[in-house]
Design a protein around this nucleic acid. Structure first.
Lengths: 229, 229
DNA sequence: CTAAGATTCAAACGATCGTTTGAATCCTGG
DNA sequence: CCAGGATTCAAACGATCGTTTGAATCTTAG
C-alpha cells in the first residue's frame, strides 16, 4: 500500500503552485486583472489546470481566501480563549483583546518570504471589493471570530452602548485593513519613504496605542447620540 | 477656431452623462469590471463617445477622480485656512483639525441623490487599488492637502514624534477610507443591519471622538520607538 | 444659405478573456 | 506486469474586451 510514501508530495503540488501564484498576482493586479494564462504561466502549470483542480476562476479565488483565512481566524479565536482562560472570570483589559486580535494579522506580515505578506495585503483589499460574492465570503469567514471579539469587548467596555461599540469595532477593523493593505500609501502622507521593511512589533505597539485610545474614549454627548429614531 | 461661444448646455452634456454613469458603475463593478458597452449604454451615449471625449478608458477614470477630488481637497484646505485664521496664531485644537478634515468627505455622503455618495465609496476603494497609475493619481491629488494638515497636526501635537504622527495620520486616513467605502460591511461585525441611511452628523461625532483619542494618546515606550532617524 | 468643424453613429477590428475538449501521459493498485 | 483512473497537455471554442474607422448628422460662423 504505502510502499511509496512520496505519493503525497506531488498529489497536491499543482494546487499549491496555483494558489501561491494566485495569491501574488491577485495582489499585484487584482482579481479581474489577473488572467488565467498569466497565472498558470507563473505557476508553471498548464492553462487547464485551474479549471481541472478548482472548477473555475471564482472557485480559485475562494480557495485562496479559505486557505489562509480559516486557520487565521481559528488562531484569533484560540488567542482569545487563552486570554479569557488566564483572566479567570474577570474581563480582560481592552488592550489585551486588541493585541490578541492584531496578532494573527501581524504574524503574517513577518512571513516575508512566504506568501503571508501578500495575502494580508490582498485581504485588505477584499473588504472593499466590488464583487458581492467575495465580500460575502469574507464576511462569512470572519463571522465567528467577530462574534467572539464583540462580546469580549462588550464585557471589557460595559459602559459603551452596543451600537457605539459596533461602530468602533468597524473603525478598528478599517484601520487595520487599510494599514495592511495600503502599505506603500504611507509615503503619500509624508515624503517619507516606506524605509525599512515592516517592523511588526513596532507596528503592533503603534496600532494598539491608537486603537485602545479610540475604543476606550467616552462617547460624546451619549444622550443625544442614543436618541436617533 | 475653438474660441466660439457656443451654447453651454449641450456642449458638455455627453461628458457629464458619461462621468455620472462611470461614477456609479465603477463603484458597483470596479474599473475592470465595467465595460465601455455597459457604461455608454447606461449613459445613453454612443459606444465611441468615451474615446472621443476622453481618449481612453484610463483617461476617463482619471477624469472621474479629478472632477470631485479637486474641489474636495480645495475645500479641505480652505476649511483649514479658515480655522487657522480664526485661531490667530495659536494652534487649533486637534479636534477642530479633524473635523475640518472630515467635513468635505461627510458632506458628500449627504449628497444622497447626487453622485457624491457613490464617489466617496469609490474613493475609499481607490486607495487599495491594484493599479499603480490610479494610486499615483490619488496621491498626487491629495498631496497638497495632506502637507497642510500634517503641519497643522504637528503644531497641535508638538509632543508627538514626526514618524509617530505620520503613522497616526495613516491610521486616521484608513479609518475614514474604510468607514466610507465598506458601508455595508458594518453588519458583518454585528448582525446589525445598515438600518437607517447614513446620519452624517452622528457619524462625524463618532469618528471625531475615536480619531481624536487615538491621535492624542501618548506614544508608548517613546524611547524605544524613536530609535534612529 | 453654405461651408466647415464638432459630434454622433453603426460596424468592425484585433486582442484577450475563461472555459472546454479529447488525446497523451503519468501514477498506482492488483 | 498490466489495466484504469488521475493528471497534464496543446488546441480550440465562443464571448467580450477597448479601440478605431469612415460616413452621417448636427451646430454654428460668415
Amino acid at each position: 500500500m504505502n510502499l511509496h510514501l512520496r505519493t503525497l508530495k506531488p498529489q497536491h503540488e499543482t494546487r499549491t503552485r496555483i494558489l501561491d501564484a494566485a495569491e501574488e498576482l491577485f495582489m499585484q493586479h487584482g482579481f479581474e486583472g489577473t488572467s488565467m494564462r498569466l497565472l498558470t504561466s507563473k505557476a508553471g502549470v498548464n492553462l487547464a489546470a485551474v479549471n481541472y483542480h478548482f472548477g473555475s476562476k471564482d472557485a480559485l479565488i475562494e480557495a485562496v481566501f479559505r486557505r489562509r483565512l480559516d486557520p487565521m481566524n481559528a488562531e484569533r479565536i484560540a488567542e482569545l480563549d487563552r486570554l479569557e482562560k488566564s483572566a479567570a472570570g474577570t474581563a480582560p483589559a481592552p488592550e489585551r483583546i486588541i493585541r490578541a486580535f492584531l496578532r494573527a494579522s501581524l504574524a503574517m506580515i513577518e512571513d516575508a518570504k512566504g506568501g503571508g505578506r501578500n495575502f494580508i495585503r490582498l485581504l485588505g483589499r477584499a473588504y472593499t471589493e466590488p464583487s458581492k460574492p467575495i465580500r460575502a465570503l469574507i464576511g462569512q469567514l470572519y463571522g465567528p471570530a467577530m462574534e467572539r471579539y464583540k462580546s469580549a469587548f462588550q464585557r471589557a467596555l460595559p459602559e459603551l452602548a452596543h451600537e457605539e461599540l459596533i461602530w468602533r469595532m468597524h473603525f478598528m477593523f478599517g484601520t487595520l485593513a487599510y494599514t495592511l493593505a495600503a502599505t506603500d500609501t504611507v509615503q503619500l502622507i509624508a515624503g517619507c519613504k516606506p524605509e525599512d521593511r515592516y517592523d511588526a512589533k513596532l507596528l503592533e505597539e503603534r496600532l494598539t496605542a491608537f486603537l485602545e485610545a479610540g475604543l476606550r474614549v467616552p462617547a460624546k454627548a451619549q444622550s443625544t447620540v442614543k436618541k436617533a429614531a
